[in-house]
């Protein structure tokens, strides 16, 4: 069967796998964004805290994803738990780093002005600082999403959802007619999902970055 015929005949299943892949990556990026922005906000005032948070999260990023996933099996078993844990951990670095950089880049004069017109500390944070740092945070999320695409494919080894399963079933059917079609469909599928989500980030940036910032 040619690749085109194969995709045409398995269109529905591939679409489900692609949707699950995208959904796992998006949800984990969102969890990492909440945690990462909170961490960034907590440490951004202290240079030492910022350095430690950046050093720790960047060391995590160095760890081979297959080793981390493997290490999580004895602790969390198979399925959703190890997948989500690993994906969230890997997504943290770009978001934490960019939150810290974004918050540090806010002009102190703007903060003075905000306090001067009587805004509370929380008000300054949510209505001034985070809005000005948002473009940087969003860039961090975009980098994280691209990073998670490939790691999510490996997570199929621990029975995670998504297109990795298509690749692995290609591997397990080595020698059969459809093995290459499966691996090719899984690989190209990940690339397509990655490109679509990357486009979505550009759109999201247009819609959510306040006009005064950009």
């Amino acid at each position: 069967m040619s690749f085109a015929d194969y995709v045409a005949s398995r269109w529905q299943e591939l679409l489900v796998d692609a949707a699950q892949h995208a959904s796992a990556v998006i949800q984990c990026t969102l969890i990492a964004a909440v945690l990462g922005v909170a961490l960034g906000v907590a440490v951004h005032r202290s240079p030492a805290g910022s350095a430690v948070a950046t050093a720790l999260t960047s060391a995590v990023l160095t760890i081979p994803s297959f080793a981390l996933l493997g290490l999580l099996i004895p602790v969390l078993g198979l399925g959703v738990a190890p997948t989500v844990t690993a994906l969230v951990l890997y997504a943290l670095l770009p978001i934490v780093r960019n939150t810290i950089v974004g918050l540090a880049g806010v002009d102190p004069a703007v903060l003075d002005a905000a306090r001067g017109i009587g805004m509370s500390r929380a008000g300054v944070l949510t209505r001034v600082q985070l809005r000005l740092a948002w473009p940087a945070v969003l860039t961090g999320m975009r980098v994280s999403t691209q990073l998670l695409m490939g790691i999510a494919a490996i997570a199929a080894y621990v029975k995670g959802p998504g297109l990795g399963n298509v690749i692995f079933s290609g591997l397990s059917r080595v020698g059969s007619a459809n093995a290459i079609n499966l691996a090719l469909a899984g690989t190209i599928g990940v690339v397509i999902v990655a490109l679509v989500l990357d486009g979505a980030y550009v759109l999201l940036g247009r819609l959510t970055i306040s006009r005064g910032v950009a």
Binding site: Q146, M149, G150, A153, I154, L163, G164, I167, F168, G170, L171, V174, A179, I180, A183, L184, G186, T187, I188, V190, V191, A194, L195
Partner: peptide, 18 residues
Amino acid sequence: NIGQAAPAIGLLVLFFLV
């Protein structure tokens, strides 16, 4: 850049199968 978006496991498996 597009090549980088391809998952490493996919490239490995494809190269092996091909």
